[in-house]
Each structure stands twice: as structure tokens, then as C-alpha cells.
Design a protein around this nucleic acid. Structure first.
Lengths: 224, 224
DNA sequence: CACTGAATTTAGGCGCGACTAAAAAATTAT
DNA sequence: ATAATTTTTTAGTCGCGCCTAAATTCAGTG
């Protein structure tokens, strides 16, 4: 039996690997809100497990083995399916879904997974635009074009928000910057000045904002 | 923070208290699939907790304190709401809902509870006919009239099935004996002979069965 | 190349909730 | 009333996942 803790470690390793590249003890410790020494201990256990779940050599960081990656993706699939289900079926706001999914992801059965996936029509992204891994363990390439890189004059759509902080998500929602919202970049200040944007669909009231990099770097968009 | 284990103990104590009357160490051990010594240990802890969750004196059995009962009822409310939600919203068969709810009951938030309760229209019974405690901790009197006590000639409705065994529940479903099914008792054999019944609504095809006490004692009915 | 500061690992421990084996208490039978 | 049986409790352990404090190893600088 795989414990919840192990699932959390594997998921965290996958996520850090994905958006930092190299997984260190201290990054894992921060991500999991645990002391670095605890991470070392657990990682050593995962490396000794049969089948091995991670590759580990002291001071060299951690990588997932195929077996470890498989489990990580199953948990992430659960997480993102549940997030979407909570939003679609129960009317959750997008800032609340992460915390609830964090707990549910470890306990739902295969049957539950299949039922909500079918009910949602085998969706490909969760409410933050993160891709939902398929049952056989493939993940679509995530959108990696930050709003901060868009030239003035371009119109794009919000495709992904890379942050789970409820306060940040509520802030974005207030600005109208929800998933699939249309955004036109009107002006880009030199250096690291704010980005001026207009949010809204054609024909609907448009709201304008000036946003710093800490915001625009976390919003990924797709050209239309 | 209340652990899942503590919640399971309090729930088990409540359930045994309800349908046996006196809660002994060994009954609890069986119910929880745990060694009797483990029960003694945990019960002593619950009795020392602040606020005290159970009343306990060695060799005298256990009872819930108001604080313990409150927690037990919250967990049971979760359990039964989830069972009904799984059946209604996700199309689960009634033999599968218990196992899934057993895991989910410990992790859902208040918000989740409220949302599914509202979505189900504040229901009063779960798919097995067990009453769902209200949020303020009141429980409707459960139906206590066993099918085995019904006189030949009487027509009743299935109001509650007091068994969580999936195999048993599938067996009942096969006979047509689901919640709210109409049953007419046609003949009662002397002593502990089988009870002859006819299952089905007026105008619909009726199926007849002969059932032993081990079955008819677990089915509770209401007169129409 | 040695020094310094940061990151990582080792060592030792703790609380939780389970276990087994053995003692003690309660219940039932003689 | 006492002996035999069952139930319950005590005593002592174990694995898990976390902690802190104290080594150790790494990486960047003079």
C-alpha cells in the first residue's frame, strides 16, 4: 500500500522537476512544508523501495523512476479531475478547489475517478489550465507563453495560471482574468515597468489594468 | 486536530451503542478489525482527552460524552450524505457506496458537506434508509420494524436495510428488494421457516421469494 | 587552494496507532 | 464456592513520518 505521504512526495518531485528542472532536498522540503532532514529520510526510503520510485545519490538531487512517475501522474490526474469536478459540478470558486482536491486525491477509488472523468467528458485541463494526465500516463504539453512576453497590440486568451494561492486567484478573478478570458496588451513599459492590458470579450465592457511582472509571469496565454 | 482513527472509533462506538446497546472492548475490536488490546489503549486515550470524548471505567464498557457524540454524528452525517451523493449524482450502485464513503467521510470540508446537502435537497435518509443526522446533531428515529415481524397479508415498503456487506446488498437488489420497494407477505412458515413474499408495485410484474430470518431480520419496513 | 557559508545528511528521539504475550478480572459452570 | 473459561487490561515493541542538533559535503570567493 502506498501511503499518502509517499504520494505527496512523488507528486512534489514531479511538479518541481517540471517547473524548475532539478529537484533538490530543500526545494522539496519547502514545497512539502517539512524539515530538510525529513526529506532526506523519505527520499532514501523511496530509493530503496521495490520497485524503486526515485533515483537518488547523496547531494545529487532526486529524479523519478518510471514507477515513481506513474504514481505521481495518477495522483495528479486525480487532483486535477477533482478540481474540475468541484468547479463544474459543485460550483466551487477556482481559489478553493486546490485545497479540497489536495485531500480527496489520496482517497478516491478508480471507479470514482472514471465516473467523474466520464461525467466531465474526459476533460484535458483543470480550472487553472493545468493539463490533466490521461489514464495511461501521458500529459499534454503545458502552455508556456507568459503574458509578460506578449507584444503590445496582440490579443490573446488566458490559458493557464501557475499559482495555487487562493488570494492571488481571487485577485485575478476580480480583474476578470479567469481561464479563457480575452486579453489585449495595450502598452509595455520599458524595463520592468507594468504591462497595460484590456480584459474582455469583443462587444462586452472592457476593463483595463496595469500589472507587474510578478503577476504577468504567472499567467500563460495562447495566441488566437 | 482529530485523527481519522479517533473519528472511526467514535463512529463505531455510536453505531454499536445504537444497535446493541452496550459497547464492549471486543465488539469494538471486531467492528474496527483491530486487536482488543488496541481498543483498550485508544479508549483510554479518548477518556483522557480534553474535552473527554468517552466515559470509560475498566471492564465497564464505553459510552460517548456529548463532545464525543457530536463528532460521531458529524462523521456519520458526512458518511451518509456522501453515500447518497454517490448514488444520486454519480450513479453508484448501493453496494459500492459504503466503501467509498468510508474514505471520503474523513477528508471533506464543511463547504463540500454543505454543497452536496443543498444539491440533494437536504435529504433525511441515505441509500440504505439510515437517517442522516442534521447539522445541529439531531437524528430521526430509525425504522425498527423488521420484515420478519410482518403478518401474512400485509403490504409494506422497504424502509431500511441494516447491512453494509456488498454481496448481501447485491443479492437483495437482484430480488428487487431495494429501498422503498413494495412487499406483500404471503405466508409465514411456523417456527423459523422461511417467509414468503411478493415484491413489486401494483400493476408491475411481481416476483415471489421465500426468505430466511437472516435476511428478513435485516430488512426494516414501514406500513403504508 | 584554503576558507566560508549554504545545503545536505546523519544521529538520536518523539508521538501515534497498531501488534503480541502475559497477567488480571469478570463470567459461567461444576 | 471454587474451578474453568472468556474478556479485558497491562507491558513491551514496532513501523511510520516527522522533528532538532550536530556532522558533513558542496560551491563560490579571495
Amino acid at each position: 500500500m502506498i501511503s499518502h505521504a509517499v504520494e505527496d512526495y512523488l507528486k512534489a518531485i514531479y511538479e518541481i522537476e517540471e517547473d524548475v528542472g532539478h529537484v533538490t532536498t530543500s526545494l522539496l522540503a519547502m514545497h512539502l512544508a517539512v524539515a530538510p532532514a525529513s526529506v532526506t529520510g523519505m527520499v532514501q526510503k523511496l530509493a530503496k523501495a521495490r520497485p524503486r520510485l526515485v533515483n537518488y545519490e547523496r547531494h545529487q538531487g532526486v529524479t523519478l523512476t518510471p514507477a515513481g512517475r506513474k504514481i505521481a501522474l495518477e495522483v495528479i490526474r486525480h487532483h486535477r479531475l477533482i478540481e474540475l469536478y468541484l468547479a463544474e459540478a459543485l460550483g466551487y470558486d477556482w481559489d478553493k478547489v486546490d485545497a479540497e482536491a489536495e485531500k480527496l486525491e489520496h482517497v478516491i477509488s478508480e471507479e470514482f475517478e472514471d465516473k467523474i472523468a466520464a461525467l466531465l467528458g474526459d476533460p484535458t485541463v483543470d480550472p487553472h489550465g493545468d493539463p490533466i494526465p490521461t489514464k495511461d500516463g501521458t500529459v499534454a504539453e503545458a502552455c508556456r507563453l507568459p503574458l509578460s512576453a506578449i507584444e503590445p497590440g496582440c490579443t490573446v486568451r488566458v490559458a493557464r495560471v501557475r499559482d495555487a494561492d487562493p488570494e492571488f486567484l481571487r485577485y485575478l478573478a476580480e480583474l476578470g482574468l479567469t481561464l479563457r478570458a480575452q486579453v489585449t496588451v495595450t502598452k509595455r513599459a520599458p524595463f520592468d515597468g507594468p504591462l497595460h492590458i484590456a480584459v474582455g470579450e469583443a462587444g462586452a465592457p472592457v476593463r483595463t489594468h496595469a500589472l507587474g511582472r510578478s503577476v504577468t509571469d504567472r499567467i500563460f496565454v495562447e495566441r488566437q
